[in-house]
Each structure stands twice: as C-alpha cells, then as structure tokens.
Amino acid sequence: MELCSFLTLDSFITDPLTHDFMRKALLMSSLVAAVCGFLSSYLTLKGWALMGDAVSHSVMPGVVVAYALGLPFSLGAFIFGVGSVALIGFIKQKSRVKEDTVIGLVFTGFFALGIVLVSKIKSNIDLHSILFGSPLGISLSDVKQTIFISLLVVILLSIFRKDLMLYCFDPRHAKTVGINVFFLHYLLLTCLSLAAVVGLQSVGIILVVAMLITPGATAYLLTDKFDNMTLISVLSAIISSLIGIYVSFWFDLETGGSIVLAQTFIFLFAFLFAPRYGIFKLKKLFAGYK
C-alpha cells in the first residue's frame, strides 16, 4: 500500500472495503460496539465499572476450557463470567474483606487460572487473539455466535430499558412498587457477561472493559437525558470501532488497541469540550462571542 494512496479520503475509506476480512471486521466490530455501548450507559450510571473489569477478565478460563472441549467459547465464558460474580458476592458476604478488594482478588485469580490453563493445554488456542482480540481474523462460526448473542442482549436491554434505568437510579422505589429487583440485577449481570464475550473478539480480554465503560462515560458528559445518553454511547462506540479498524489497517497497528484508543480520544474530547460538563464548556465560549 502506497502512502500517498490515502491522501484522498475516498480511497482511504474504500480501499480496505475491497478485502473480505475488512468488511467482516468492520461489520462485526460495529455490532459488538453497539451492544457494549448500549450496556455501557447502564454500567456507568450503576457504578459497575469495576464489575465490568472483573467479569471480562474472569471469562478467560471459560474460553480456554470451552476451546479444549470443543464447545462454543461463549458458553464457557458466560459460565465463568456469572460464576465470578457469584463468588464475589459470596466472599463479600462471608468475610470482612471490602468489596473492591474481593473483586480484585477474584478476577485476577480467574485470569491467572486462564493463563495457566492455556500453557498446559497447548492446543490450537491463540493466546494472543484472546488477550488482544482478532477482529480481522474472525471465523464464520464466530460471526454467527456474535450476531446471535448481540441480538439477544439488544432485545433484552430494549425490553427492560426503563426498568433497568429505574433499577440503576432508585432500586428501593423499584422494590416498593413490586418490580422484581433480583431479576433486574441478574439480567444486567447476564448482559454484562454476554457483552464481555462478544467484546473480547474485537479488542480482547484485557481491553474489553474499555468497550463497556468508556462510551457510557463519554455520553454521560454530553447529555442530561437518559435516552440521549444511550444513543450517544452507542454512536461513539461504533465510530470508535470504525476509526480504530481503519487506522490499524493503514498504519499496521494492533486493532484492539486502536479501537480503544479511539474511544479514549473521543472521551478526552468530551472531557475538554462538552457543552455543559467539559473543562472549557464550549457553550459558554460561543456565548461569549455573540
């Protein structure tokens, strides 16, 4: 690829699209980004960033075991994701250790178990693609799985959109008016595990937590309306994925890292220039010139 070929914006965008693997990567990553972005606004408001980190790391041994047994890796990941949360809850309740400490020790334990298992099983598991994602090398069965899980999560979140918002905002009121808070809690956890599973294909286990918290945090700085927050979160996640993949294609960079960096830059932009909550409050700057 000639360096001058992307001097024109047109070819910068269209050239990669001639490759089948690029089209697939762009589509899949956008889908995954949309799912994670949707969930992200709930996690940000609920204060579950650390929980997202824990679940996404804890799925590691599940992925390895599922590969070794020839099962869909999403199944293994899901079991270990939910299992880690149950274990965190159990240890927290039965000991005097503080919650953030429990979360930290459980997920690093699971993660370490995963790494040890990979070194022992030594099958055709590509440790690198699990840790850092491989959106450019996604297989057909993975595509089907990703689409199925993504649709499932989007449908669940859409149906219980308002209940989940109430659950994040005021669980006590939800309980008082007879809404099943227990169900909503586990629904959100289930969606979190599933989103971590599809997210790790794009950006890998280590960075998937960024997909789950950065878009929500960006949107939180830009709006005071919940619906807009979800929309902005999803859009910023998709745009980051597209930017990340294009940049990694043209400059030969790690794709997962590029996607997350794009999200981080969008967040920084919002942090500096958000109309109401940014450091430089664009609204005020413009108002000054009028």
Partner: peptide
C-alpha cells in the same frame, strides 16, 4: 402500589441524567 417511599436527598444520585417528568412517571411504573 400501597406504599410510597420518599428518599432522603442524600440517598439518590442527583447527577443521574433524568428529568422531573421521568422521575414522577416512575411512580406509575408498578
């Protein structure tokens, strides 16, 4: 829907992106 609970101001996240209308509508969710 027999009981309504009115929380302390400190008991809620005042930075939650939600309007007066939406909060009051939550009274009808049940």
């Amino acid at each position: 829907q027999t009981i309504a609970y009115v929380p302390q101001n400190e008991g809620i996240d005042s930075q939650f992106p939600i309007s007066v209308w939406d909060v009051v509508m939550m009274g009808r969710y049940g």
